[in-house]
Amino acid sequence: IVGGEFTNVENQPWFATIYQKNSGGAPPFFKCGGSLISPCWVASAAHCFIHHPKKENYVVYLGQSKRNSYNPGEMKFEVEQLIFHEDFSEESLGYRNDIALLKIRTSTGQCAQPSRSIQTICLPPRFGDAPVGSDCEITGFGQESHPDYLFPMNLKMSVVKLISHEECKQPHYYGSEINYKVLCAADPEWKTDACHGDSGGPLICNIDGRLTLSGIVSWGEGCAKKNKPGVYTRVSSFLRWIQSHIGEENGLAF
């Protein structure tokens, strides 16, 4: 996250930290963010996993304010299922259908348990997004500037505004790379944004008084760069897909 502020995971209790295991015995390294959408399922971005698509490669934590260290109240999970959107694709500039689902379970076969630092996030109503200009929160352990190579140890969050598809499709923005299955969001002053390493994390908007997972951090040109907003997978366009894999009986909250 460029700009913004450091925060405690209690402010974003649905935030999941996803690590990729090392083959050589070194500790797992931070890979991407995610969001707990039901007790046993985390939503993230397909592009995080597409080059190493085996579920055994990953470990997921909930309740972490500080990455790669022990956080009181955290929960650690293996990935029981790793599902990519079948129409995921890498385009010239960005991605399409950039969404993945991870079924999580502890070593004793448990799903997530609610606490001050672990909570699910609501899914948006079908095709019901917050209006253009809404303030939405982003969260992650991604880089604080671009180009950078260090990821902060502590969780950050910031606020960006939803911008219209018309604005985002302008030639000097992203032109035809933008379709209606993504959302664009940016800071009016181009001072804060998601960045490399925030992929898969949440774009949380308030819809009818409920905090809702409206977007999944997907791509952007640079970070906090003028006329280059952040591009997010539009979750309200994938509700049927999500439900087809998770179903309603698993505590999804629409």
Binding site: W14, C111, T120, P125, R210, L211, A253
Partner: peptide, 22 residues
């Protein structure tokens, strides 16, 4: 049909644990 925000197993989607104001 929007299910209630209180879904199974004690989760309340989108709710943050507000700090008690001492």
């Amino acid at each position: 049909k929007p299910s209630s925000a209180v879904d199974q197993q004690g989760f309340q989607c989108g709710q943050k644990a507000l700090r008690p104001r001492f």
